[in-house]
Design a protein around this nucleic acid. Sequence first.
DNA 1: CTCAAAGGTTGATGGAGTCAATTGTTTATG
DNA 2: CATAAACAATTGACTCCATCAACCTTTGAG
Lengths: 163, 163
Amino acid sequence: MNGYSDSHSEQAVRPSGGPSGGTEAGEVGVAQQAWTLLFSLLHTHMRNFPALAAEFELSPVQAHVLRQLGEEALAMSTLANYLSCDASNVTGLVDRLEARGLVERRSSEQDRRVKMLVLTEAGAALRGRLMARMFEPPEFVTAMPEEDQVALRDIMRRALKTQ
Amino acid sequence: MNGYSDSHSEQAVRPSGGPSGGTEAGEVGVAQQAWTLLFSLLHTHMRNFPALAAEFELSPVQAHVLRQLGEEALAMSTLANYLSCDASNVTGLVDRLEARGLVERRSSEQDRRVKMLVLTEAGAALRGRLMARMFEPPEFVTAMPEEDQVALRDIMRRALKTQ
DNA sequence: CTCAAAGGTTGATGGAGTCAATTGTTTATG
DNA sequence: CATAAACAATTGACTCCATCAACCTTTGAG
């Protein structure tokens, strides 16, 4: 194939490697092929996510936090769930964001145990710039023929809906 | 898993002002829509990559190293390039993998400055199991109708070829 | 031979992540 | 009602990841 495919070709697309699913064997085969290719492309692209976050002087995780904190106030524990990490980790994470004036801890009135996180004005502004940058499509998408882009978009819309 | 779908909708798919015709300005709009959706789905999936690596008692980065180290011996500096991180970081990384008997440093004979990294037998075995696990398609792929899976696979094949 | 450049290591420092233990606040139960 | 259990957040100890600056050895060019 091409120069890239070596890093995932030998163990990757092996149809029906085990008895794992109860579904039809053919479905799993195509799904695995699609996933393997998707995974490879994405992994190459995700390599520069740290650099992207660094454009805003954010760590990758801080960028992720800002992304989640967009719409509504979140409790610390909810954020820990989104990040699938320990609650104690979120404490330090928010400490640093708060020290930079991007985020604010606000005690909940219904339940005085929880602290709600809200973006400051500066935090919301930074998030806006970050999101615009994050959603710039990478080259492997812009280089596609438009019909592929449309098909990809529609497939992803359906996948999101049934999730 | 739940409560996710709202986190990417407000700044994300903005059709960039222009009317989306078949021209190049319209192409960018569709590309951005496709990318935004893809990005969101992928980011939710990537959240549990640490857990996946942990099934093999590996950190995410160690899993990435094992993946890269599949076929051929790599110099430390080459690995640092792949990981796009500092060379001094690789030292400790390889130290820990070597201490677990997964990787071996081997001095190059052409250039006695460089050290080549090779998988041990145990390392290769672990890598095999890891790769098989990594390429198991996630639910958002297996839940697709098969024609979407086929279309997705073909789109990704074309994208890889023209990369 | 001399000296600069390259490959790798070391030490200092800081963010990210976990676990165990603690404090303060609900909520459930006897 | 009183007390125990559950929960939210924090702290402290510890490990890994990551960077930078300084260093040593080897290489290669002049």
